[in-house]
């Protein structure tokens, strides 16, 4: 019958349009939507009504749905990135506003009473904060309990602050002192260890103890060579690495024990 051919043709076009939906949505509702469209076409042909206007109207209505579902899908897929981009922008807005309105916010790095960051410094800080945030998101996505998330958060925050402290004021002397590069060793141990461990709690615990040990070694070298490290700051960072290691270990114990997770789990 001519109407069946017309319905078949419109259904094929409609099926092509449905390919524009995000894959999970398409896999779930693609076939039922095509069925419903066919049902509506049959209803119209049975009532001796034309199909062209109806099909165009339905294509437009479904097109609106496609835009909405793709936007929702994109936001859901990238909401962690969006969140950290917003956090980064919010943090960077503080020194920016202080510079624009000449607020007397003390900035130890600039050596002045007011903040005076250059574009490069903004870019470096932006990359650091965003990178740390995304690293934490990755670690948190592998976390099975609160202790695991907390351990990852402390490790990432300690790494971020160590870089920032060295860039802003310098852990040894001032920020221009090349001796500060020795702290790259600490960060390297932490990053390589976390990469190998892939933030799995037992392995990450060992990596964080190794990072704390590397930090101690750096301090000892700095003392022996007479570089004059800032011991209170070093003690703070070593405590942070050890705290992270202990929490990773607790997370490992909790996830290994079927009853042990009740205290720390957030699921």
């Amino acid at each position: 019958m001519a109407s069946d051919r017309a319905i078949g043709r419109y259904r094929r076009w409609y099926a092509r349009l449905l390919r524009l939906y995000p894959r999970p949505y398409r896999e779930r509702f693609g076939k039922p939507m095509a069925q419903t469209f066919t049902d509506l076409c049959r209803e119209r042909t049975n009532a001796h009504q034309g199909l062209l206007g109806f099909a165009l109207g339905t294509f437009a209505e479904t097109g609106t749905g496609i835009i909405r579902e793709n936007a929702t899908h994109m936001v859901m897929q990238n909401r962690n990135y969006l969140r950290w981009m917003l956090i980064t922008a919010a943090v960077l807005a503080i020194p920016l506003l202080a510079m624009v309105f000449r607020l007397g916010v003390p900035d130890p790095g600039s050596g002045t009473d007011g903040v005076n960051w250059g574009p490069l410094y903004f870019a470096i800080m932006g990359v650091l904060i965003l990178g740390a945030g995304l690293l934490f998101e990755y670690a948190a996505s592998r976390a099975g309990n609160v202790a695991h998330k907390l351990a990852a958060g402390i490790a990432v925050a300690a790494g971020l602050f160590l870089v920032w402290a060295n860039l802003a004021v310098g852990m040894i002397g001032d920020e221009g002192n090349a001796a500060n590069l020795i702290y790259v060793l600490v960060l390297a141990v932490g990053l390589i260890g976390a990469s190998i461990a892939r933030f799995e709690p037992r392995e990450a615990s060992i990596a964080m103890f190794a990072t704390a040990a590397a930090h101690v070694v750096v301090v000892v070298i700095a003392l022996v060579v007479g570089l004059g490290p800032e011991l209170r700051a070093d003690a703070f960072f070593i405590a942070a690495w050890v705290a992270s290691a202990l929490l990773f270990r607790q997370a490992s114990t909790a996830s290994a024990s079927p009853r042990g997770s009740t205290e720390v789990t957030d699921r």
Binding site: P32, L40, T58
Partner: peptide, 27 residues
């Protein structure tokens, strides 16, 4: 009900005031 069945039922119960296309319905 299936999708088309829901669509027709809504149309009937709202006395034709509420009409949903497949995009709106399945969304």
């Amino acid at each position: 009900r299936h999708g088309y069945g829901i669509m027709k039922r809504v149309e009937l119960e709202s006395q034709g005031k509420v009409r949903m296309g497949p995009g709106t319905l399945y969304g």
